[in-house]
Nucleic acid binder design. Structure first.
Length: 499
RNA sequence: GGUUUCGUGGCCGAGUGGCUAGGCUGAGCUCUGCAAAAGCUCCUACAGCGGUUCGAAUCCGCUCGAAACCUCCA
């Protein structure tokens, strides 16, 4: 078995993965801010890390996967006024903040269930861990790396950098940042240095979400929740910390600094960052006003969409690219993904129905060897920093072999029984278990419809038998018009598929 | 301005210094009553200019272009 190699953002290189505790893996992934609906860009990290989670489990690790829900309302710069993002939307929609948060949390769960993402082991909320966050801030203050100012608490980055490497993850140089702050941030005048970041913020009167603290009423700072919750559930040091590349700085850099002071250890050993989804070459994000929400994607209800795209199409679309590359959205690309997935899926269905039958004929050594190689390479590829693109390419290489066995161009006996079983196992393991693809048509348990179609197929067979092609074509064409495709198989039988 | 990354055939996208990635589209053929599906075949790219090397899309330099981060952000 090949070793698992992970690209560690911390060292900018691929490293062989070993877990802190044999047989166990602790993984933390930055979850959604539930102040609005998830869009296509959000699908990338959760699908990426779903595959990581699945593969680690496939390898036999017992994985504790923690993914937070940010429901405490971080800051948003709107004009000159800093407001609580969640509180603001709540007022607009005349909802309680927690009602709003619940709504978007539910929507998030619904969408990622459709993506066939496994649920994390623990999904902690920021609001549920205010106490832990306050305790951690107190510890940092006691150690002298944070100071209070007007009811807010800031982390002293300059002091931290004297004895620690601030910028270890992002490659930033503190001296550069001390000078080059060209932005006006709220509360800047309260800080000793502009690079200091908030651990706790004093809540202005209009701020709805607020909690009592040793420094007065307020709310937690931007980064503290991940440090507090990851250490609570995974320990002071754990194996993998994941998230989008855009979180590398400042979010993850700040997490490292806080945790280092509070716990005296580097919080995570492997840092993984997925790249962005772009649209017209630009990052998809709220700030750019170019997002396509998942609900819009699933329904096709968006001016940039030519049609609706199913959750599995999107999952496949994302997995066809390596997670550290940007992925550009376009209708053309999505439609190509849709067709490709369809092809892969039908090959899988064929493969499942095949069973090995030897008849004493000789094995086609060359083909057998090639098939075996394609199968075995899948593990090599996924182990190489989760190269799902290459795994899929190999499954595509195997598809013609499978279809040819069904079509008769290749005889079953040309493969050894061992190879055939490896083939079946490979598809099950990779397509289903690791890449997490699933049939779209699971909802088709309507036996009544099936009965109707069986009847029509029977009538078509009869028409064909008496060479009444007008009638047989009518049945086929009209069914196709409503999305049911009939296929004449080589052996004279008929099958159908619902689009 | 600083930090970092990227620039691959019609489109999307892998990629190791030397051997066809793969998908989608397009063309042809086989199969078929005709289709569809499937199979086979074809369309062979690596921003530009230098350099290192027996050999570079892959290493180095420069130029041009694009993006991300430096601010909430997946």
């Amino acid at each position: 078995m090949s070793e698992l190699k992970i690209y560690n953002s911390l060292h900018r290189q691929k490293e062989v993965f070993t877990s802190l505790y044999p047989g166990h893996v602790g993984m933390y992934v930055c979850g959604p801010t539930v102040s609005g609906e998830s869009h296509l860009g959000h699908a990338r990290p959760y699908i990426t890390f779903d595959v990581v989670y699945r593969y680690l489990q496939f390898l036999g690790y017992k994985v504790r996967y923690v993914r937070n829900i940010t429901d405490a309302g971080h800051f948003e710069e709107e004009g000159r006024e800093a407001e609580d993002k969640i509180a603001k939307r709540a007022q607009l929609e005349k909802l309680e903040p927690m009602e709003l948060v619940q709504k978007y949390t539910n929507l998030f769960h619904w969408a990622f269930l459709r993506f066939n993402c496994l649920e994390p082991s623990i999904e902690p909320t920021a609001t549920g861990h205010i106490v832990e966050q306050i305790e951690m801030i107190k510890t940092i203050m006691e150690k002298g790396y944070a100071y209070e100012s007007n009811g807010s608490v800031y982390f002293d980055v300059k002091k931290y950098a004297e004895s620690h490497d601030y910028g270890i993850l992002s490659g930033r140089v503190l001296e550069d940042m001390l000078e080059s702050s060209n932005r006006e941030l709220d509360g800047q005048e309260e800080k000793i240095n502009n690079v200091d970041f908030a651990l706790w913020k004093n809540a202005p009167p209009e701020h709805i979400m607020r909690w009592p603290s040793p420094w007065g009423e307020g709310f937690p700072g931007w980064h503290i929740e991940c440090s507090a919750m990851s250490s609570k559930y995974l320990g002071k040091q754990f194996d993998i910390h994941g998230g989008g590349m855009d979180l590398q700085f400042p979010h993850h850099e700040c997490e490292i600094a806080q945790s280092e002071i509070a716990h005296g250890e580097l919080m995570a050993r492997y840092w993984m960052h997925n790249n962005m989804i772009t649209i017209n070459g630009r990052k998809m994000g709220k700030a750019y006003n170019n997002t396509i929400k998942l609900t819009e994607l699933f329904t096709g209800n968006h001016h940039l969409l030519e049609k609706a795209y199913s959750p599995m199409t999107i999952r496949f679309f994302i997995l066809q690219t390596h997670y550290r590359s940007t992925l550009d959205f376009s209708n053309e690309a999505l439609q190509a993904a849709e067709k490709g997935l369809q092809r892969l899926w039908s090959a899988f269905e064929v493969l499942q129905k095949l069973s090995y039958a030897a008849n004493g004929q000789p094995i086609n050594e060359e083909l057998d060897k090639q098939v075996r190689q394609w199968c075995l390479e899948c593990e090599e590829f996924i182990s190489d920093d989760f190269n799902t693109a290459k795994v899929l390419a190999n499954l595509f290489e195997l598809s013609p072999v499978i279809n040819s066995i069904k079509g008769g161009q290749v005889k079953m006996h040309e493969l050894s029984e061992e190879t055939f079983q490896l083939l079946q196992k490979t598809w099950q393991n990779f397509l289903i278990d690791i890449l997490g693809l699933q049939p779209e048509t699971l909802t088709n348990d309507n036996s009544k419809l099936d009965g109707v179609i069986q009847l029509l197929m029977e009538m078509r067979k009869e028409a064909k038998a008496r060479k009444d092609y007008a009638a047989s074509d009518k049945i086929r064409n009209q069914l196709l018009a409503v999305g049911i495709q009939l296929k004449d198989e080589k052996d004279g039988s008929m099958t159908y598929s619902i689009q």
